[in-house]
């Protein structure tokens, strides 16, 4: 049962990235990383025990948000959802991400919650996780001594709440590819009331050539233990003319991709019933014929 107060823990407040990485290297999994805190502190009040918590609060240079038309978007580890919402470039070039950020949680939470934190939470319901999964991208992981590696977003989520992050790694940046003129994306979600975690969310990103889809990435949340891609549905759409018939077939194919369950927010039956509808609507929205 939840408590009003947090149990004891040591709070580490590194003043530099190198210091943070050294702490991670030294503690090897004994330290929990606190970015925005909007998930972690709730979990800790509900009984998740952490003896040592490392806050990224003093790492000022991790909150970058930079767009380059050639190389794409760089989102720092401490960049908040509110920063995305305020960015005209995100709005213009990454509609799925902007739409997911705009309705993410609440205005107060958007001021502290981070995009990277949402990804690393490993929840199958994360709204911007869905958007990033559809847009594609990589998470840059740093280790002490200058080590760097990139994790493809498709490889990030291992199982419910578990990611491919090693315990000495700190995610420092999320990189999204630059869109081209044929890139179309959109995000949609279903909730019980407007301010809510998703019952089901879906994000799509299509590379269009006229009416024809060259390639597609679809991501859906709350229909499996992790955020998932929808390969069967993607296969229907790729190379096809995006019309009602294609979308109907894609909507049908989604059933092969998903394995929803009953939970607090909805039922497996309902999720199966609306998954195709929402995929169809997201594609329609992305392609501008909603």
């Amino acid at each position: 049962m939840s408590s009003r107060v947090l149990t004891d823990f040591d709070l580490l407040l590194p003043g530099s990235l190198e210091e943070a990485l050294e702490i991670l290297d030294r503690e090897r999994g004994a330290v929990t990383v606190l970015s925005g805190g909007t998930d972690l502190l709730v979990m800790m009040k509900a009984g998740f025990e952490a003896d040592k918590v490392m806050s990224l609060a003093l790492l000022g240079d991790l909150n970058r948000l930079e767009f380059d038309s050639a190389t794409g978007l760089r989102i720092g580890a401490r960049t908040t959802l509110a920063q995305l919402v305020d960015s005209p470039e995100v709005r213009q070039h990454y509609p799925a991400l902007w739409q997911s950020a705009r309705i993410f949680a609440t205005p107060q939470l958007r001021n502290t919650a981070t995009v990277v934190g949402n990804l690393l939470r490993g929840s199958p319901a994360g709204d911007c996780s869905a958007a990033v999964a559809a847009l594609g991208g990589t998470l840059v992981m740093a280790t002490a001594g200058g080590g760097r590696r990139e994790i493809d977003i498709d490889d990030l989520w291992v199982s419910y709440g578990v990611t491919a992050r090693a315990d000495n790694e700190l995610a420092v940046e999320l990189r999204l590819p630059a869109p081209d003129s044929g890139t179309a994306s959109a995000f949609k979600r279903l909730t019980r009331v407007n301010e809510d975690l998703a019952k089901l969310n879906v994000a799509v990103c299509l590379q269009m050539d006229g009416d024809t889809c060259k390639s597609a990435r679809f991501a859906m949340g709350c229909v499996a233990p992790t955020m998932i891609r929808l390969p069967a549905a993607e296969a229907i759409v790729q190379g096809a003319k995006v019309d009602d018939e294609t979308l109907a077939r894609a909507a049908e194919a989604v059933q092969q991709d998903i394995s929803p369950i009953d939970d607090k927010r909805s039922t497996a039956e309902y999720r199966r019933s609306v998954a195709g509808v929402y995929l169809k609507r997201a594609v329609q929205q992305a392609c501008g014929f909603a």
Binding site: L11, L34, T38, L41, S55, A82, L109, N111, T112
Partner: peptide, 13 residues
């Protein structure tokens, strides 16, 4: 002038 939830903010930060 941005608003935050003080219940989810560690004072030490």
């Amino acid at each position: 002038n941005s608003a935050i939830n003080s219940c989810l903010t560690l004072a030490a930060t």
